[in-house]
């Protein structure tokens, strides 16, 4: 029972109409969305700015780190995963994990076949 921390009145709250049976349906407020939106725009400016500086091998690493951060906050807040059940959280996590496994396996195959040429 994950929702024991929810106030009891939610169960009978007729105003919680969007999902009358469920206490945990979390409505993300416009203010929260605005903070996420501002963060995304700031990160976009940051990544453009960072691309102008010569950081050698770190240019792609920083660009991907910023993109990953942006992706994660979109998933957590715009896509509500932070407020979803464990089933959904594990499903999303498993999908990205599986993708990374596939990339790693395929890349190690390519690298080991052309050994020394990379």
């Amino acid at each position: 029972m994950a929702h024991e921390d929810q106030p009891e009145q939610h169960y009978n709250d007729a105003a919680n109409v969007t999902n009358p049976e469920h206490a945990s349906h979390h409505i993300v407020s416009p203010a929260q969305y605005a903070v996420v939106f501002a963060t995304l725009l700031a990160c976009t400016a940051l990544t453009v700015f960072a691309a102008d500086i010569n950081l050698g091998v770190f240019n792609p690493i920083i660009a991907l780190a910023i993109a990953s951060f942006k992706g994660v906050i979109v998933i957590l807040f715009f896509m509500h995963v932070k407020y979803q059940s464990k089933l959904i959280k594990v499903t999303v996590g498993a999908g990205f994990f599986m993708f990374l496994v596939l990339v790693t396996m395929t890349l190690s195959d390519y690298i080991s076949r052309a050994w020394g040429l990379w």
Partner: peptide, 30 residues
């Protein structure tokens, strides 16, 4: 609305990765 939102945000995320990979990371070649 919620499920379409998931789709639209997913398309967003794809672009969030396409932009740096295609446009940005090759400005300072090694």
């Amino acid at each position: 609305i919620e499920n379409f939102g998931l789709y639209w945000h997913f398309v967003d995320i794809v672009w969030i990765f396409l932009f740096p990979l295609l446009y940005l990371i090759n400005r300072h070649p090694l």
